[in-house]
Amino acid sequence: MLNALSLILGIIAAIALLLGILPLFGWTLWILTVPAGIIGLILGLLSGQRTGVTLNVVVLAIAALRLFLGGGLL
């Protein structure tokens, strides 16, 4: 059950990440992608399976790279 919730949050974060990659939409990374990814990561760690953890780590890594390249703002 926790893994399913983790996967759902990871998919939501991935969709928001696709929007956040566009210029001037970097705020979606702070508002939706990072919080959903962190909560999904925690839920994935509490479950026995690792698919949710993997998805959320990949989404958070790409979001962190995008924020780093954009200076954390854009």
Rank of each mutant, 00 (worst) to 15 (best):
N3S: 15
A4W: 12
A4M: 11
L5P: 02
S6Q: 11
S6G: 12
L7M: 06
L7G: 14
L7W: 07
I8L: 15
I8R: 15
I8Y: 15
L9H: 13
I11E: 08
I11D: 14
I11P: 12
I12M: 14
I12Y: 15
A13E: 05
A13G: 10
A14S: 10
A14L: 10
I15L: 13
A16V: 01
L17M: 13
L17A: 11
L18Y: 07
G20D: 06
G20H: 09
G20A: 13
G20P: 09
I21Y: 03
I21E: 01
I21V: 03
L22H: 00
L22R: 12
L22F: 05
P23V: 07
P23D: 10
L24P: 00
F25M: 04
W27M: 12
W27T: 14
W27I: 15
W27F: 15
T28S: 07
T28R: 10
L29I: 15
L29F: 12
L29P: 06
I31Y: 09
I31M: 10
I31A: 14
L32H: 00
L32R: 03
T33Y: 05
T33S: 05
T33F: 04
T33R: 08
P35R: 09
P35K: 14
P35W: 06
G37K: 04
I38A: 11
I38R: 04
I38F: 06
I39E: 02
I39F: 10
I39P: 02
I39Q: 00
G40N: 03
L41E: 12
I42K: 08
I42R: 09
I42D: 08
G44E: 04
G44S: 02
G44P: 03
G44Q: 07
L45H: 03
L45M: 07
L46R: 13
L46M: 14
S47M: 08
S47L: 10
G48C: 00
G48K: 08
G48W: 06
G48S: 12
Q49M: 07
T51F: 06
T51P: 10
T51C: 03
G52A: 09
G52C: 04
V53N: 07
V53Q: 05
V53Y: 00
T54Y: 08
T54A: 13
L55P: 12
L55F: 07
N56P: 09
N56S: 05
V57L: 15
V59P: 01
V59T: 05
V59H: 04
L60G: 01
A61R: 04
A61S: 15
A61C: 04
I62S: 06
I62M: 08
A63T: 06
A64R: 03
A64V: 03
A64D: 06
L65I: 13
L65K: 03
L65H: 05
L67G: 08
L67D: 02
L67F: 01
F68C: 01
G70V: 03
G71P: 13
G71I: 06
G72T: 07
L73M: 14
